[in-house]
């Protein structure tokens, strides 16, 4: 049984009204892995996570989370999983410590008092233990939420956009924490819109319009997209951007300060078009590595095309 993956679900479907919000999603997350869950707004990430932690019943599909059936053993799953909701959902009129004591009580942790104290200590919340959760800033709220969902020592964490609105330092600390726990054997599924965070994951799963359209290690996903990227640099990138649009092989043009990233699937055509424009506008062109973001933009555009 130790070989069984932490998450193995197949063909999950959820229908709201007449929309297939999640449409045949299959996920596999190995134990101890940090899995990224990515996709545009409204693509069905939260809904999928809810189905996997027993909050929603799938309309079709099945699977096991930590070896428990997601349809029939929701209660066991809840006991073993720490779910951090996308929206802060602890009690704003309770202090940090009271919130944690409440959670400790729900999980029946003993000795509750010591566990709460240790958790506060662990996550550096001791100094603010008596502060009302409602008066915390975003970063501290996130830390409280994380504390609350790892306090009962779950074997799997499902974090739904845990770092939205959190400053870089706090995010760095958060990810360090996640990696430390993962090294101890904790499995983490984390949804995010940040590319740098996606790159911190062992594997990523990309979902669009309720369908899983890419999965694997970051490098594999990037390679699998088969994109070529060139960078134009110089004083006149705005003009270059305008001229590049619509040229053969050019699929994405994005400005980053004084540089211009040009992406496309057809490497030869792309290079040819870019060279021509570089010459016309007096910019310099050199090849670059394709970034994950480029891949996602490509995937998003593709899934939108498939909708039409």
């Amino acid at each position: 049984m130790t070989e069984e993956p932490a998450i193995a679900v197949t063909g999950l479907v959820k229908i709201f009204g007449n929309r297939r919000v999640v449409d045949g999603v299959s996920l596999r997350v190995e134990r101890g892995e940090i899995a990224g869950f990515l996709g545009p707004n409204g693509s069905g990430k939260t809904t999928t996570i809810r189905m996997m932690c027993g909050l929603l019943t799938p309309d079709a599909g099945e699977g096991r989370v930590l070896g428990f059936d997601i349809r029939r053993q929701g209660r066991r799953i809840k006991r073993e999983v720490g779910y951090m909701t996308q929206r802060f959902s602890f009690y704003e009129d309770l202090t940090i410590e009271e919130n944690l004591s409440f959670v400790a009580g729900l999980y029946g942790l003993t000795p509750a008092r010591r566990i709460v104290r240790d958790t506060l200590e662990d996550l550096g919340l001791s100094g603010r233990r008596h502060q009302l959760a409602g008066s915390l800033s975003g970063g501290w709220k996130q830390r409280l939420a994380l504390a609350a969902c790892i306090m009962h020592r779950p074997r799997l964490l499902m974090l739904d956009e845990p770092t939205a609105g959190v400053d870089p330092l706090a995010r760095r600390m958060f990810w360090d924490e996640i990696h430390a726990r993962s090294a101890e054997g904790l499995t983490v599924l984390v949804s995010t819109h940040y590319m740098d965070e996606a790159e911190r994951c062992h594997r990523i799963n990309y979902i669009a319009n309720g369908r899983l359209i890419a999965a694997g290690r970051v490098a594999d996903v990037v390679a699998g997209a088969g994109l070529t990227t060139v960078v134009l640099e110089g004083p006149n990138t705005a003009e270059a951007a305008r001229r590049l649009k619509g040229r053969p092989g050019v699929e994405q043009v994005a400005s980053f300060g004084t540089t211009l990233h040009v992406v496309g699937r057809d490497a030869a055509a792309l290079r040819q078009s870019a060279e021509a424009v570089a010459r016309e506008t007096g910019t310099t062109m050199h090849p670059a590595e394709t970034m994950l973001e480029d891949v996602f933009i490509q995937l998003m555009a593709a899934s939108e095309d498939s909708l039409r």
């Binding site: 909050l55 959902s89 602890f90």
Partner: peptide, 14 residues
Amino acid sequence: ERGTMENLLSMPAT
């Protein structure tokens, strides 16, 4: 309304 119900239900409370 406060969204705490989702959290509550995701913990082992019946």
